[in-house]
Design a protein around this nucleic acid. Structure first.
Length: 423
RNA sequence: AGAGAGAUGGCAGAGUGGUUUAAUGCGGCGGUCUUGAAAACCGUUGUCCCGCGUAAGCGGGACCGGGGGUUCGAAUCCCUCUCUCUCUACCA
C-alpha cells in the first residue's frame, strides 16, 4: 500500500510512474485525495468535540471534589450529549477510513526508474545469462518421462492421495529434493541469512499484510473452520514476523531465510505447457528476505540477485536473469528480477526465482519501521526472493543431467544425497 | 476439551468511577563527577492522527489485549470476543 502522505505530496509524479505499469491512476488518486480530505475534516471536528467534552468532565470533577455540587449538576446537564455526537463522528470516520483504505489497496506500487516500459513477458529485459550449457547430449526427454523410468516422482499416487498437482517424491527422488532443501538453506546461512522455520498456515491479518488478501484470496487454500490460510510462499510468514515491529537502526539489515512447502490453488492456470513439475499445488521453496534502510535497498536487490544467480551456477544449470518490464511486474513490487533455468528436455525456460524490492509498499501495511539516526521512526524497505523454487530446479536437474543410463547428481549436492547417480 | 486465574508502557509492577498528565522500580538515552569505567546524583523516555512551523518544536485528539455498553467523566463497572497462565484430560 502506498503511503497517503506521499500521495498527498506527489500525486502527479505517482500517476506518471504508474503508467509504466500500464495502470491509469489519475481518477483513483483523485478519489483517494478527496476521501483523505474528508476523513481529516471529520477527524478535526471530532477532536474539537472531544477537547470540549474533556474540559467539562474535568471541571465537573474539580467542582465535586471541592464540594460545589450544585455547580457540578448544572454543568452535567450542559455536557450531556457530547459523547453521542462524538460516537456519531467516530462512526463516520471509520466509514471514511474504510473507503480510503479500499481505494488505496487498489493502487499498485510505483515502479523504480530502472524498470523498462512494456506490456508482456516478451518485453522483459535480459540482463544476464550464464554459460552452463547442458552437459546432456543426444535425444533429451522431458522430466515427466524420466521420473517414470526411474520411479522417483509419482504423480498418479499423489492424485490418489490428494489430487493432481500433489506429487509423491520417492526414494532417490525424495533424497535429491531433500538435498536441495539442505543445500539451499546452508548456502543462505553462509551468506548471512538467519534460518527460520515458520508456520505454514497463517491468519488473515498476515495474509492481508503481505498483500495476498483481499485481492488474491483465490490463490490460497483456506481452512474456513479455523480462519487460516495455507501459505503460497514462505514470504508470508517470514515477512509477518516483523509486522508491527519498530527495529533499531543497528538491527538493519535483517536477513532471514526459511524453507517451507508452498500451497497454491492455481485456479484456471492449467494448460498444455504446465505438465509435470512445472506447476504444482504443493511445492518446496527456500526463501530469502531482507529488511533494510531505504538508501540501501537497491544495492541489496543486486546482492540478493547475485546470490541466487550464483546458487544456480553452483548447480551447473544454464540460466538467465530478466529485469521485468512494467506490465509484467507484480502489484506490490517496485522492481523485480526473474531468474529462469533452461530445461533441456522440454526446451523451455522455467522461472525458478523472483527477486523483488518492495520499497515501503509492504512495510506500510506491515507497519514495519525503524528508528533512524535522528530517532525518527520511518518505514523500512523489504525485499525477498526465492532461493530457490525447488520443484522446477528438480525438473531442470533431471532434464539437464540425464544420460542414457541415469541422472547425474550435480557435484555440490553429492555430499547431501550420498549418491552420484540415479539409475 | 473441562475448571479456575489473568491481560496495564521496552520489562517488572501499582492503580476498583473524578488534579491519572498512569505511581514506583529496572532498563535505555543525555549529563555531572572520574585518567577511563563503575557507583552515586540530576534530567529524559512509547505509538498513531490532526493543526501550525523550513525545522527543532508547539497545541489538540486517540491508545491500559480487541470490539461494544453504562456515565458529565472508565485502566477501573457491565457485555462480548481473542489470547496467556495453572490444574485436569488427551496427544506426536
Amino acid at each position: 500500500m502506498l503511503e497517503i502522505s506521499t500521495l498527498r505530496l506527489h500525486s502527479e509524479e505517482i500517476t506518471q510512474k504508474l503508467l509504466i505499469k500500464n495502470f491509469p491512476a489519475e481518477n483513483i488518486i483523485k478519489e483517494v485525495l478527496s476521501a483523505d480530505q474528508q476523513k481529516r475534516e471529520l477527524q478535526t471536528e471530532l477532536d474539537t468535540i472531544n477537547a470540549s467534552g474533556n474540559r467539562s468532565a474535568k471541571e465537573i470533577g474539580r467542582l465535586m471534589t471541592t464540594g460545589q455540587n450544585a455547580e457540578a449538576e448544572k454543568l452535567k446537564i450542559e455536557a450531556t450529549g457530547f459523547r453521542e455526537k462524538a460516537k456519531e463522528l467516530e462512526q463516520k470516520i471509520r466509514e471514511a477510513e474504510t473507503a480510503l483504505e479500499e481505494l488505496l489497496v487498489r493502487i499498485p506500487n510505483t515502479p523504480s526508474e530502472k524498470v523498462p516500459a512494456g506490456k508482456t513477458a516478451a518485453d522483459n529485459k535480459p540482463v544476464y545469462e550464464n554459460d552452463c550449457k547442458p552437459t546432456a547430449t543426444g535425444t533429451l526427454f522431458p522430466h515427466w518421462d524420466i521420473i517414470k523410468k526411474y520411479d522417483i516422482i509419482d504423480f498418479e499416487t499423489g492424485i490418489k492421495i490428494s489430487g493432481p498437482g500433489f506429487p509423491v517424491y520417492k526414494g532417490k527422488g525424495a533424497r535429491l529434493l531433500r538435498a536441495l532443501i539442505n543445500y539451499c538453506l546452508d548456502e543462505a546461512c553462509k551468506a548471512g541469512y538467519k534460518e527460520m522455520i515458520p508456520p505454514v498456515f497463517v491468519n488473515s491479518a498476515s495474509a492481508y499484510a503481505t498483500g495476498q488478501l483481499p485481492d488474491k484470496d483465490g490463490m490460497m487454500y483456506e481452512m474456513k473452520e479455523d480462519k487460516l490460510y495455507a501459505i503460497p510462499t514462505a514470504e508470508v510468514p517470514l515477512t509477518n514476523i516483523y509486522r508491527d515491529v519498530i527495529l533499531k537502526e543497528e538491527d538493519l539489515p535483517v536477513k532471514i531465510t526459511g524453507y517451507t512447502p508452498c500451497f497454491r490453488r492455481e485456479a484456471g492456470s492449467w494448460g498444455a505447457d504446465v505438465r509435470g513439475l512445472n506447476r504444482l499445488h504443493q511445492f518446496d521453496k527456500v526463501e530469502i528476505v531482507q529488511i533494510c534502510k531505504p538508501e540501501n535497498s537497491y544495492l541489496t536487490l543486486e546482492e540478493m540477485r547475485n546470490f541466487v544467480q550464483n546458487l544456480i551456477i553452483s548447480l551447473g544449470l544454464h540460466s538467465r536473469t530478466l529485469l521485468l518490464c512494467g506490465g509484467d511486474m507484480s502489484f506490490t513490487s517496485a522492481m523485480t528480477y526473474d531468474l529462469e533455468v533452461f530445461a533441456a528436455g522440454q526446451k523451455k525456460w522455467l522461472e525458478v526465482s523472483s527477486v523483488s524490492n518492495f520499497e515501503t509498499f509492504q512495510a506500510n501495511r506491515l507497519r514495519l519501521r525503524f528508528k533512524d539516526a535522528n530517532k525518527k521512526t520511518q518505514l523500512a524497505h523489504t525485499l525477498n526472493g526465492s532461493a530457490l523454487g525447488l520443484a522446477r530446479i528438480l525438473a531442470a536437474i533431471i532434464e539437464n543431467y540425464q544420460t542414457p543410463d541415469g541422472i547425474i547428481v550435480p557435484e555440490v549436492l553429492r555430499a547431501y544425497t550420498g549418491f552420484e547417480k540415479i539409475f
